[in-house]
Simulated assay, not measured.
Amino acid sequence: MLTGKQKRFLRSQAHHLNPIFQVGKGGVNENMVKQIRDALEARELLKISILQNCDEDKDTVASALVKGTRAELVQVIGNIIVLYKESRENKQIKLP
Results as ranks from 00 to 15, higher is better:
Glu41Gln: 09
Phe21Ser: 05
Val61His: 05
Leu46Tyr: 08
Leu17Pro: 10
Val28Asp: 04
Arg11Glu: 14
Pro19Glu: 07
Arg43Glu: 12
Cys54Leu: 03
Glu41Cys: 01
Glu44Ile: 08
Leu95Asp: 11
Val76His: 04
His16Phe: 10
Pro96Lys: 02
Asp59Gly: 10
Ala39Leu: 03
Ala39Met: 05
Glu44His: 07
Arg37Thr: 15
Asp38Lys: 09
Leu45Ser: 04
Asp38Val: 06
Lys58Asp: 06
Ala14His: 01
Lys34Thr: 14
Ile20His: 11
Asn79Phe: 03
Lys34Ser: 15
Arg8Asp: 15
Ser63Cys: 00
Ala14Thr: 02
Arg8Val: 12
Ile20Glu: 12
Gln22Ser: 15
Lys91Pro: 09
Arg43His: 12
Ile81Leu: 02
Ile50Thr: 04
Leu95Val: 08
Ala71Val: 04
Leu65Cys: 08
Asp55Ile: 05
Leu65Gly: 07
Val28Asn: 07
Met32Phe: 11
Glu89Met: 07
Lys34Pro: 01
Leu95Asn: 11
Cys54Ala: 14
Ala62Ile: 01
His16Ile: 12
Ile20Met: 14
Ile80Pro: 00
Ser12Lys: 14
Glu41Lys: 01
Arg88Ser: 09
Val61Lys: 06
Gln13Asn: 02
Thr3Glu: 09
Val66Arg: 11
Lys58Asn: 10
Met1Val: 06
Gly24Phe: 13
Lys91Phe: 03
Leu83Lys: 06
Asn53Asp: 14
Ile93His: 01
Ala39Asp: 04
Gln6Met: 12
Gln22Thr: 15
Lys47Ala: 01
Ile93Asp: 01
Lys5Asp: 15
Gly27Arg: 07
Lys25His: 14
Gln6Arg: 06
Ala62Cys: 05
Arg88His: 09
Cys54Gln: 01
Leu51Val: 01
Val61Phe: 01
Leu51Tyr: 07
Asn31Asp: 14
His16Trp: 09
Asn29Asp: 15
Asn29Val: 09
Val33Pro: 07
Gln22Ala: 15
Glu44Tyr: 04
His16Val: 14
Glu72Asn: 13
Glu89Val: 07
Gly27Asp: 05
Val82Leu: 03
Val74Thr: 03
Arg43Asn: 15
His15Glu: 15
Lys5Met: 12
Lys25Met: 08
Lys25Gly: 07
Asn31Gln: 15
Lys5Arg: 12
Ala39Pro: 03
Asn53Met: 05
Lys47Gly: 04
Ile80Arg: 03
Leu46His: 06
Asp55Ser: 13
Gly68Met: 07
Glu89Gln: 12
Gln22Pro: 00
Lys67Arg: 11
Gly4Gln: 13
Gln92Pro: 00
Val23His: 06
Lys85Tyr: 00
Met1Leu: 05
Gly4His: 08
Val66Ser: 03
Ala39His: 11
Lys7Met: 12
Val82Ile: 13
Leu40Ala: 03
Pro19Lys: 08
Ala39Gly: 08
Thr69Asp: 04
Met32Arg: 13
Lys34Leu: 15
Leu45Gln: 02
Lys34Gly: 10
Asn18Arg: 14
Ser87Glu: 00
